[in-house]
Nucleic acid binder design. Structure first.
Lengths: 149, 149
DNA sequence: TTGGTTATTGATAAAATTATCAACAAGGAA
DNA sequence: TTCCTTGTTGATAATTTTATCAATAACCAA
């Protein structure tokens, strides 16, 4: 059974429906990886879909854990398919990105769950910092600038 | 020397200025703890300040590490004074919040710095999950809803 | 396959956020 | 104190995001 068929069934069990608009947006995210709402719209506007629908659908998919939200420091939220857990490390100076495997943080997250009793939704965390190269070029009192991405 | 005097001097060293608008916004954040841009504006509009100025000033203060941004899951970013490091754990079902002392995550963050060579800006992280009470009231296939705060 | 229920969409307006630019004012210099 | 430089603000427009609601279409039942 295809991935889409499974997803459709899951949504229906929850009282929702699968629509061509939702499929198109999922396809766009699958093709590119992660996109802002504006970028999604640019890719699906040919279908006649409204911008409002893009925002609504992304919200809907995120609330149903089909996609996940990631604040990538550009001032605009990005969305991506919820797949294997991983995290990101982004340099605030040059924008370089590095992927962090889920295992690296798993221990800490487990400890946090044990300590607080919460069950965490930490599928995708983003950390910000200075990469080794940019650390060199900054003086004693750096003024950080958010770099768009 | 007062805290404001120190801050003013620091900004000036970086080529910026202290203004009554910036003071008013800092005062509001000091009084309440954390506020969204709209909430800040509600508290300072009596001074005649523009909404645009509120957004600009919050951005400015965040880029200079005077305040920090926290995505509190309401869909709108919140701002708070940058003080002693701490983190938050928020229940996605009922909105309950729990503070996490910095020490709990320090070890993990240090390890991450060592592993990647990055210098992290992780003054305030927010984790989302289900609190112990809400875990009881959810069935096998929960549909999470973001709760505004 | 057909009909009926209702979740979803498009169209539109409203609200929130960002960009632009001339006028103003903070802070240093004389 | 007064003048000058230029960072900052207010006013305004543009853009992004959210809310509203009637029309549409997905999906189940017969």
């Amino acid at each position: 059974m295809s991935c889409i068929t499974t997803l459709t069934r899951t949504l229906r069990q929850r009282g929702y429906r699968m629509t061509p608009q939702r499929l198109a947006i999922l396809q766009a995210l699958h093709d590119v990886g992660h996109l802002t709402p504006a970028q999604v719209y640019a890719r699906v506007r040919a279908t006649g879909m409204t911008e409002a629908t893009v925002y609504r659908t992304l919200d809907f998919l995120a609330e149903n854990d089909v996609v996940r939200v990631a604040d990538r420091g550009s001032g605009h939220l990005a969305y991506e398919l919820a797949g294997e857990d991983h995290h990101h490390l982004i340099c605030r100076a040059c924008g370089a990105q590095q992927e962090i495997p889920a295992e690296v943080l798993r221990g800490m997250l487990d400890a946090l769950e044990g300590h607080t009793g919460y069950r965490l939704n930490a599928g995708h965390l983003t950390f910000f910092g200075l990469c080794p190269i940019c650390q060199e070029s900054f003086t004693a009192e750096p003024v950080y600038e958010i770099v768009g991405g």
